[in-house]
Simulated scan of single mutants.
Amino acid sequence: MMRLNPIVVSLTSFLVLGGCSSTLVEPSHYSGFLPNYSVLEEQESASGAKVARWIDPSLNLGRYSSVYIEPSQFYPRPQPSQQISQATLDDITQYYDTALRRELGAVVKISDTAAADSLVLRPAITAVSTSTEGLKPYEVIPIALVVAATTTAVGARDQEVQIATEAMFLDGGNSKLLAEVVRKGTGTSLENKETALTVKDIKPVIDGWAKDLRLAYEQLKNKP
Rank of each mutant, 00 (worst) to 15 (best):
M1I: 08
M1P: 15
R3V: 09
R3C: 05
P6C: 06
I7R: 14
I7D: 09
I7A: 13
V9K: 14
S10L: 13
T12D: 15
T12W: 11
S13V: 03
F14M: 12
V16C: 12
G18H: 06
S21P: 01
L24F: 04
V25H: 00
S28M: 07
H29N: 13
S31D: 00
N36T: 11
N36D: 14
V39R: 10
L40M: 11
E42P: 08
Q43H: 15
Q43V: 11
E44G: 10
A49T: 00
K50R: 10
K50L: 09
V51T: 12
V51R: 11
W54C: 08
I55D: 03
D56L: 10
P57Y: 09
R63M: 11
Y64S: 04
Y64G: 08
S65N: 15
S65M: 02
S65D: 13
Y68T: 08
I69D: 01
F74L: 07
Y75C: 01
Y75R: 02
P76G: 00
R77C: 01
P78F: 03
Q79Y: 12
Q79G: 09
S81L: 09
I84N: 06
S85D: 07
Q86N: 14
Q86C: 11
D91Y: 01
T93L: 11
Y95V: 08
Y96W: 10
Y96T: 11
L104V: 05
G105W: 00
A106E: 10
K109L: 05
K109I: 06
I110W: 00
I110G: 07
T113W: 02
A116L: 08
D117Q: 02
D117C: 03
S118V: 02
S118H: 02
V120Q: 00
V120R: 00
L121A: 05
R122Y: 01
P123M: 02
P123H: 01
A127E: 06
T130E: 10
T132Y: 06
K136F: 15
Y138A: 14
E139L: 14
P142K: 03
P142A: 08
I143R: 15
A144Q: 11
V146W: 11
A148Q: 15
T152W: 04
A153T: 15
G155C: 04
V161H: 01
Q162V: 10
A167S: 14
L170D: 05
D171L: 05
G173A: 05
N174A: 03
L178M: 12
A179W: 01
V181Y: 08
K184F: 03
S189D: 10
N192H: 07
E194C: 10
T198H: 05
K200G: 03
K200A: 15
D201E: 06
K203T: 14
V205I: 15
D207V: 12
G208Q: 08
A210N: 02
D212Q: 13
L213M: 13
R214N: 01
R214E: 01
R214F: 00
L215F: 06
A216T: 02
Y217S: 04
Q219I: 12
K223H: 09
K223L: 14
P224S: 10
